[in-house]
Design a protein around this nucleic acid. Sequence first.
DNA 1: TTTGTAGTTGCACTTAATTGCAATAAAAGG
DNA 2: CCTTTTATTGCAATTAAGTGCAACTACAAA
Lengths: 140, 140
Amino acid sequence: MKPSGKIVSRLSEQGYRLTPQRMMILSVIEGGGGHISAEEIYAQVAAKYPYVNISTVYRTLELLKRLGLVTETDLGDGRLRYHPAEKGHHHHLVCTECGVVINLDESVLARLEDVLLHRYNFSADLKHMAIFGRCANCSE
Amino acid sequence: MKPSGKIVSRLSEQGYRLTPQRMMILSVIEGGGGHISAEEIYAQVAAKYPYVNISTVYRTLELLKRLGLVTETDLGDGRLRYHPAEKGHHHHLVCTECGVVINLDESVLARLEDVLLHRYNFSADLKHMAIFGRCANCSE
DNA sequence: TTTGTAGTTGCACTTAATTGCAATAAAAGG
DNA sequence: CCTTTTATTGCAATTAAGTGCAACTACAAA
């Protein structure tokens, strides 16, 4: 699995270097099923290419996040999850009682994003949110 | 400063013990201006009463959060912030570019909470949210 | 007031994430 | 192909937060 040319050229255009570490990290992020953690990325990369450090993974994720190429979301399991933007946006409802995760269409937050933009001139990043609460079962 | 009888009796009623550590932690949370971090609470408590451990602070906060007595919010500065529920709910817009924090009335998320409840039977905890994005100035 | 017990705490350790800094290497230009 | 510049990495250390477990203690009951 190779990283998509889209992300690679985006990095290149902006003056970021295409190191082997970044390439490996990118292909893992794009190759998997999404919602992957930094440690999981590290483990998968290190299995094939030992010359990577966990801090490089974190720094690469920080970069990709800043460029809007991946989203970072806390799904309540103690580690941040990363999801490639190209796989499409959505949100999650996370039950703090039983842990169930319900997927939500992106459109659910569209109106809020709109209100924040027009009323506060604030360009909210609502690409991949996790909303905590209690699911139907756990509400009693 | 003493902790409010309301919180104390709530803890007591539910079978939780009123230890001196908890009392000190509570009074610091209620006494300050809100949005305090665990380390700040610890420092303030330890100054007056050395017999406290930072892990007790974390565990007390976890308890208060679970009971809905304090809210826990990531305002983007690398530490979670705690706010007593009794001081009233509100939200924040946090600019990831310049760090400015804009306060938002609770009502801004009321509609979303409603939609999630009726459409998904999900009782969302939208008491004290931080929404990240770019403020008017930083949007260019 | 004493006792029993289950909730709490302190301590040491672990984990996820971040950071300073010297060494390294990508990539543009000669 | 070699040199230069500067982005990037690895390493070690740090920080915020969470946890297992034995010792302790709040508080209800005797």
